[in-house]
Amino acid sequence: MIPTNIFQSLSDANILQILVFCLFFGIALSKQEAERREPILNGVNTIVGSLVWMINKIMLIAPLGVFGLMAEAVGTFGFSALMVVFKLFVVYVAAILIFGFIVYPLLVHVLTKTSARKFLVAMKKPQAIALSTSSSMATLPVTMETVENELGVKNSTASFVLPLGATVNVSGNAIYYGLVAIFFAQLFNVDLSLTAYV
Results as ranks from 00 to 15, higher is better:
19 L>N: 07
82 L>T: 03
135 S>M: 05
21 F>M: 03
151 L>E: 07
153 V>F: 13
175 I>M: 04
113 K>G: 09
75 G>I: 07
133 T>L: 00
24 F>W: 08
64 L>K: 05
191 D>T: 14
82 L>V: 03
146 T>F: 01
188 F>V: 03
110 V>W: 13
79 F>Q: 11
192 L>I: 00
168 V>F: 13
109 H>S: 11
173 N>P: 02
104 Y>C: 12
153 V>T: 12
115 S>G: 13
150 E>V: 09
54 M>P: 00
55 I>T: 14
171 S>Y: 02
182 I>E: 03
126 P>L: 06
47 I>E: 00
47 I>M: 11
83 M>E: 15
128 A>Q: 03
82 L>G: 12
3 P>H: 01
121 V>M: 14
29 L>I: 09
49 G>R: 05
138 A>G: 13
52 V>D: 11
45 N>C: 06
135 S>Y: 02
41 L>P: 04
4 T>A: 04
189 N>T: 10
47 I>C: 04
161 V>F: 08
10 L>K: 06
112 T>Y: 02
89 F>V: 09
24 F>S: 15
128 A>R: 00
30 S>K: 09
77 F>C: 11
23 L>T: 14
69 L>H: 02
58 I>G: 08
196 A>V: 01
75 G>R: 06
186 Q>V: 08
28 A>M: 08
118 K>S: 11
100 G>N: 10
37 R>M: 07
1 M>W: 11
11 S>N: 13
132 S>T: 15
